[in-house]
């Protein structure tokens, strides 16, 4: 089944939500494992998102314009003795609007009751 243009998948919504949380906490950028950890913290199962699913979703969100990304300075990473990170930044305004629309569309429609219910028959 094809999804509607502009609609977010649950994982994409979770990524944007986590990215906005980090932004509010003063962290302007994040890397893949970092966002997976934030999502896992807010998830009941607590499991980290799988590699393929996570980076594919990050790529889609970047293509859609919600995220932008750059490689961090390789020398800085080498100085800390670790691989360089791909750092993502979220477009706060666009992400907030998309999340609001996602929550609105995914919330169940209010049930008609009483006399109003007859009108729906």
């Amino acid at each position: 089944m094809r999804r509607k243009p502009g609609a977010l998948l649950p994982l994409e919504a979770a990524i944007l939500d986590a990215a906005l949380q980090l932004q509010r906490a003063g962290e302007d950028s994040f890397h893949g494992f970092g966002i997976a950890r934030v999502i896992a913290d807010g998830d009941e199962t607590g499991g980290l998102t799988s590699h393929g699913t996570l980076y594919k979703a990050l790529g889609r969100l970047e293509t859609a314009g919600f995220l932008s990304s750059t490689w961090e300075d390789a020398d800085a990473a080498a100085a800390e003795g670790r691989p360089r990170r791909r750092l993502y930044r979220v477009d706060g305004a666009a992400a907030s609007v998309a999340l609001a629309v996602h929550r609105q569309s995914s919330s169940p429609a209010p049930q008609a009751s009483g006399r109003a219910a007859w009108g729906t028959l």
Binding site: G32, F33, H51, W71, R82, P83, R85
Partner: peptide, 17 residues
Amino acid sequence: ERRRDEIHSDLWEQQTF
């Protein structure tokens, strides 16, 4: 290159964390 470097970084970050 991007996918390889991202996964390598992810693996390192997870093990360090």
